[in-house]
Amino acid sequence: MNGAIELDFWDIGFAATIVVGLGILLAYYRLGVTRTLSIASVRLVVQLFAIGYVLKFLFAEGKLSYVAIMAVIMLIVASREIMARQKRRLKGWRSFGLGASTLFVSSFAIALFGLLVVVKPDPWYLPQYAIPLLGMIMSNTMSAISLSMDRLTSALHDNRAIIEQRLALGETSREAILPYLRDCIRTGIMPVVNSMATAGIVALPGMMTGQILAGALPTEAVKYQIIIWFFIAGGVGFGMAAALKLLEMRLFDERQRLRLDRLS
């Protein structure tokens, strides 16, 4: 029960025939996603092989400074992704800054907590633990932040006339946008809550499956999966709350006027 079955390039090639077949089918019916699918498949292969070598190097070196550099790169890429997914962005680099700061505070804090208090590898920044842990928390937090920010800006934009009339009746800016805020928080956190509620019944979570394939005992693998979900829920919830709060502060000014002119 030690180590997974090794795959060679032929194995990957056989697996790829499935996607090639799908691409041909989609092209035949002119559904127009073949191009996107092939680009995504190529990106998948290139990116994962690259990260495989990077991680191999990081694990061999095991230096804190390298782990930190890796973490910063992940943060920058994720923040750029948050910005890219906004239909209406804040002017300048503020969407990037807002995404980066809230992502940083929530996911780094929780990953540190996980490493120092819960998992306690030796040294605490052991890349085999630190990088996957941070990556899982950050990717989920990134999705939640970008989704909820996008929804809030769209909701305020679409309902600006209603918000203005609510303000005119003497409501505070918070009261005037509360229904939209609630909706955004729901949208952001529901995927996590649903995954937690169905974990193990409908789907075996990816990380746990990976550990089992690599030869770990299922009873041990589930423990990791449980703490990971708690960390993800925390990262998603805190990150989103911070991002929405900052966005709200930006979209209303000191006289509680709706400032959609601050969106580009």
Partner: peptide, 11 residues
């Protein structure tokens, strides 16, 4: 405060 002002000034 802004809400107080807008309550007084009915628009």
């Amino acid at each position: 405060s802004p809400p107080e002002w807008r309550k007084r000034v009915g628009y």
